[in-house]
Amino acid sequence: MGQPGTLSWTWALCAFVSWAHVGQAGPGPQYLVAVPAVLESGAETKFCVSVLELTEPVVVNVTLKSTAKSATLMSLHTCIQDVHTCIAFSVPVVTNEEVMDFQVKVEGSGFQSEEVRKVLIRAYKPQTFVQTDKPIYLPRQQVHFRVVTLDSKLRPASKLYDIIELEDPSGNRIGQWLKTNSDNKILQLSYFLSSEAREGIYKITVTMGESKVYYTFTVEKYVLPKFDVTIKVPDEVSVGDESFEAQVCSKYTFKQPVPGRVTVGVCRPPLGHFHGSPLIRVAAHIDESNSHDDTNPVCHSETKQRELS
């Protein structure tokens, strides 16, 4: 509480604080009215009133005024009891923003107090967004996209879209939807690309009166990423070695590592066939059922899991 006429701003709240003296030495009735300093146009909001230390009934009138009109938000007749209440009201609709007077008047049989403060009423326009299910398409694929308009509380709002257009890279209109209403939902639409669809950037345009929203996606003939595999092994390995190191490296064509599982098999040629035969080779399919037969290769395989760090 403060002296008559004190204005307190905390967390965007405009508070009216005052108390009246009626010639006595002791304090008289006190009152507090709190209202947001910025109000949303057309929204439901509330202000709170507290009247304390009453010695007689009083009347509290709260009015919202502009240069063109005024609206009485509350007329409260109190008894000789403390009052704490919150009143809901509809904020006047404005085009952009407007400053209005928030007037509080407290009247009793022996005193009168009046305070006026400025509040800002601002119109928050809904925002419209467009989104496709992926950024790149192939010819003959179906383009799924959605249009949504959100209010100031991020809820789907009802919006009439005058025209929704789809243009190819040459600016030709290849699809359109007329007078479509969202009905407080997310609008789901789709379009089939022909097998001869031009490669390039396609544009979706959503028109609502004088405002427009744009979104683009790409059509191109792409292929899934390919990768190469390289194997590094020693040129020679001694028959006395219990192990040797082999490196298997796999990278995409754009030089990024490939996650996955690799199986490496090593075989020693059968006895009597060392001349002109490689000492070590990688086997894709390995059969160890005859590994103890000197007339068949001796093989060993291991599997490793490669994870991206």
Rank of each mutant, 00 (worst) to 15 (best):
V106Q: 00
S18F: 05
P270W: 09
S277M: 14
P225N: 01
N172F: 05
R306P: 02
R261T: 13
V22T: 15
S70D: 15
G23I: 06
I163G: 00
S90M: 07
G272I: 05
K153H: 12
K46I: 02
T128L: 04
R155Y: 11
A68K: 15
T295R: 11
V99W: 14
Q131C: 04
A157M: 10
L73S: 06
A68P: 07
S50M: 14
W19P: 00
N184T: 11
F217S: 00
M1I: 04
P225D: 03
G240T: 05
V35M: 08
E167L: 06
T67G: 15
S182N: 08
E196W: 11
K212Y: 06
K118P: 01
V206L: 10
T180I: 08
D133T: 05
S195Q: 11
V99A: 13
R122P: 02
Q176E: 11
I186T: 12
T180P: 00
E44W: 14
V262R: 03
Y215M: 03
D82P: 05
E114R: 14
S289Q: 06
E98H: 13
R140K: 09
L120Y: 05
L39Y: 04
C267R: 04
C299T: 01
V239R: 10
L154M: 15
Q176H: 12
N181A: 14
I286W: 06
V58K: 00
E242R: 12
F16A: 07
K159P: 03
P4Q: 01
L308Y: 05
S41R: 02
Q142E: 08
N184W: 13
G209T: 03
S243Y: 15
V266I: 11
L224S: 07
A68E: 15
F145P: 03
F89Q: 05
V264T: 06
D241H: 09
C86G: 02
A123I: 02
D82F: 04
K134G: 01
D294C: 15
T132M: 01
E302R: 10
L64F: 09
V223N: 08
R268H: 07
